[in-house]
Nucleic acid binder design. Structure first.
Lengths: 150, 150
DNA sequence: GGTTAATAGTTGATTTTGTAACTAACAAGC
DNA sequence: GCTTGTTAGTTACAAAATCAACTATTAACC
């Protein structure tokens, strides 16, 4: 009977289970920043990510964004449509390969991007500020490893 | 013109942006394990989480699960219904406060839980194995801090 | 003790995501 | 050059998440 009870928890602690912890931390880290792009520009997370990538890397195709951001192509397709509707990006058909199209931010899109990047940078600094510089650097390395980005 | 170009990237690197990194890592950590509970038991993430909590902590109310797991009550309500349909849990109305009900795993539910917990534990060990014991411990602390669980 | 507010949980409507099938364009093999 | 296969991106339909409104019960206050 004592055994039945002990089997409940035993060697397993929720607050140490990495997938759970990663999810909780990621959720929380997204939340506050989400309020900004959602509140100011009515943007979804997918849209923010596409805008972000185009702002950071300049002209890209949907496929390239998908690879970098690890987003499915349907998500990207929809985000691109929305961003185009709002005149934040323009598409240009690739004349060498007419299946593909190049995406680039409009001046309006760049303005939005720069605004949000500022917020993002200071938010990142705030999160990093929870740790020493060495710890924060190590954290980034470990997350890159976990994410398979190294 | 050189300035326009430099404004693209400048001081901001995607692979160092914590919300992005956390999301990518969390996504990847969930994915592999999701295959197990989905494949073996046709369970959704929400259902797995509820089952997991009941397995770990024993009898709980939906509200308590919501607080611990940081899940919205509608998600829990639906996950509980599904788990009940599959006879993995039973509900008992609280006679002192008849609005609340106590949820507990059935023997069948406990069997599923124990199976999945084994897989979860070894998966967690595999992830932790990417780092030294000290690093892994530090990672957990940092994630707890980021998640606001400390 | 009767009215009002708060709480546990459910349900329905809307939005967003995921999956599969699709179109259009290109590539390879013969 | 014509079949067959592949790729970029879209669309349609199903599944799931979100948000608001709802029921039933309890607590608070006068």
């Amino acid at each position: 009977m004592t055994n039945d009870e002990s089997e409940k928890n035993d060697d397993f602690f929720l607050q140490d289970f990495l997938p759970f912890l990663l999810n909780q931390a990621a959720e929380r880290a997204s939340l506050e920043f989400q309020g900004v792009y959602k509140g100011r520009y009515g943007m979804l997370r997918t849209e923010w990510r596409v805008l972000f990538h185009l702002g950071l890397f300049g002209e890209m195709t949907a496929k390239e964004i998908g690879e970098r951001a690890r987003m499915h192509k349907t998500k990207i397709s929809r985000a691109v449509s929305k961003l185009e509707q709002r005149r934040y990006l323009k598409r240009t058909r690739d004349e060498a390969d007419r299946r593909a199209e190049w995406l680039a931010l409009t001046p309006a899109g760049q303005t939005v991007y720069r605004d949000l990047r500022k917020v993002a940078a200071s938010y990142d600094a705030k999160l990093s500020g929870l740790f020493s510089a060495q710890e924060a650097a190590l954290l980034r390395h470990m997350l890159q490893r976990l994410a398979g980005l190294d």
